[in-house]
Design a protein around this nucleic acid. Structure first.
Ligand code: FES
Ligand code: FES
Lengths: 138, 138
DNA sequence: GAATTCCCGACTAAATTAGTCAAGTATGAA
DNA sequence: TTCATACTTGACTAATTTAGTCGGGAATTC
């Protein structure tokens, strides 16, 4: 049960962007250096973040990224979702109605894990980028 | 952010043991079949569970495992810990006082992830094996 | 002594992660 | 124009982790 670098880096970078980029575009190299993250890896992540509408890009000299939405309106849970690091606590495919294995009944532990997932999602949904920037996290 | 099979299988098996094994030893083959889990994998897990004092074993014919502690007194969080699937949300080594990278200050996202970890631990600590068996989970 | 069951360590195939690399496109400044 | 900067994109890969398997052994009961 561990958090990977994808999600971690994405949030770190977006926090940095919200924190230091006051309106004007911030280059990825700058973010990468400040947070000491591999830049070519970040490029990958920001590609997805742009496609999903979290950031906007300006190319060329003095270009960079800006937040496409208000920092108050971006939930941490959304970032993880967008980047491809979803919360997967249950094993059963929630689309099909079949449980863990073969049987169409849910296994004994299903509600346990589902509850855990809900708990995590609720926590991460309740915190915005702005909250992290301004250290409003308990 | 996904739950692996180690933790999942361990909890499934222990729930099965608490549910079907009324006092008397339950063979691993029986548990494995009922939950359709790979038996040789389960053996590995139960080795650790015994060493950590969650179950007791009886060898030979009609042998098997029994719970070594009351089902009410076994928290899900303990199982995951024992089996080697801990909750790792932060990246910094909590023993050393150094943060994510080099600097001894905590990174901006540290409290966010620490909070998530605390949330998860709290949830899993608040639920016992007995709770799962008797479906007292929201 | 034969069947059953736990005990234990070593090993491995497959999947995932955590990136790198190379080539291209757009923009602004000198 | 030309150059430097910076985003864009897909392909590729090394390392790690996961999810097991396998083989042999030891204890216990019938
Ligand atoms: S986790 Fe959903 S049925 Fe087992
Ligand atoms: S996660 Fe602890 S300092 Fe970054």
């Amino acid at each position: 049960m561990k958090l990977g670098t994808k999600g971690r880096y994405a949030v770190m970078a977006l926090v940095d962007l919200a924190y230091y980029g006051q309106g004007k575009p911030l280059a990825l190299t700058e973010i990468a250096q400040r947070q000491s993250l591999p830049i070519s890896y970040l490029e990958q992540l920001f590609l997805k973040l742009r496609q999903k509408g979290f950031v906007a890009s300006t190319r060329g000299h003095l270009g960079g990224y800006t937040l496409a939405r208000e920092a108050e309106a971006i939930r941490i849970s959304e970032i993880l979702e967008a980047i491809g690091e979803p919360i997967e606590t249950t094993r059963c495919d929630k689309s099909s109605s079949t449980g863990c294995l073969g049987t169409n009944a849910k296994c004994l532990t299903h509600t346990l894990w589902a509850g855990l997932g809900a708990q995590m999602h609720q926590y991460l949904h309740g915190i915005s980028l702005a909250d992290v920037c301004e250290r409003r996290v308990v």
